[in-house]
Design a protein around this nucleic acid. Sequence first.
DNA 1: GATTGAATAGACAGGTCTGTCTAGTACGGC
DNA 2: GCCGTACTAGACAGACCTGTCTATTCAATC
Lengths: 199, 199
Amino acid sequence: MATSARERLLNAATELFYEEGVHTVGIDRVIERAGVAKATLYNTFGSKDALIRAYLADRHESRRSRITAKVEQQTDPRLRLLAVFDALGDSIAAPNYRGCAFVNASAEASRDSSIQQVSTEYRGWVRGLFADLARAAGAADAELLARRLMLLYDGASIAARMDGDPDAAGLARSTAADLLDAATAPTGAATGAATAKRV
Amino acid sequence: MATSARERLLNAATELFYEEGVHTVGIDRVIERAGVAKATLYNTFGSKDALIRAYLADRHESRRSRITAKVEQQTDPRLRLLAVFDALGDSIAAPNYRGCAFVNASAEASRDSSIQQVSTEYRGWVRGLFADLARAAGAADAELLARRLMLLYDGASIAARMDGDPDAAGLARSTAADLLDAATAPTGAATGAATAKRV
DNA sequence: GATTGAATAGACAGGTCTGTCTAGTACGGC
DNA sequence: GCCGTACTAGACAGACCTGTCTATTCAATC
């Protein structure tokens, strides 16, 4: 057998926790799919909560590498920023897409759960990436644009999950393109955020 | 006692389900807070699942009236559209805000649960409202703008819940204002969606 | 006053959950 | 050959869950 028990547990947890929710899926289902004894799980991870954290940390890593790969395919700063939404589009197109794993896990956990911390790390990384890419693309206020792009990014995952919208990522991407263009426009007329025109 | 058993049950369910999640909170906690016997709950609603649906339907109604009231306060079509985000801002400002009740409940339920149906109704209403307000404000493509505004609306609730961003609604509102302005601009240069310029 | 309906408290069944524990097995290094 | 390590299978405790059922109280109506 090529894979370690830890790896098989993490794979089983990833599939089950993501598709059915961390609360609904019990330990027995995880160890059954992993083909592993219960004691092994508790020797390896210590608790279900720790397994959930490991699942999310693993997810964080795989999302990061997928997004980074998409970004690196591009050289134009503008296309590099929009590539984040292309990576999201790939995820949404998967047949078993069920929304953002961090948003879902967070909704199931209590407010002060340690799950929130792992989610915060992931979200901080995405926002930081948006800010870096926005700066490189010459946005007037990169931090503000990054926060706006996060709205679109999260909104797209919600639209895909709740409404089954298959083009949610494309919608977010085109909107992001418009915001980016407005934030990098040479004329100060429609820079968006900074304009206090009207209300 | 002025309120009926049904009303007290619904109030207790609303508080507990929203703050702690529909899965985590058991029947016993609900009836204890409502000060009602278990048999009364089952005579009134039939099952926990039906109580959850009633909780969401109730939420739908209260959200609708709150949003409608905010919109009706304005006469300018542009401000009427943005008022939806003002209503969201009021919700987020509440000390116990925990995100969109429908998104959260949906994350806890199985994919084909009847909960999804109640959520779909709510989301359809919001999107329809956005489309109506966008049309009234003279947007070039009201349906497209409505879908984009949904991204911002959902994104703001996620940002508020996951990042604790107190100004998430303001951020979404200012972004929505920019999108609306672009979609109603007299010059065809920056109408946003329809422009196929660049990628 | 008797009857009826709706509520009450709470025991109970049958199931699921996490986490612990015992007992046994396979294998690599020495 | 022997020992330590990592694993397996599975019983078990203790808690919690939903939903049903019994037995009782209270108030309004006939």
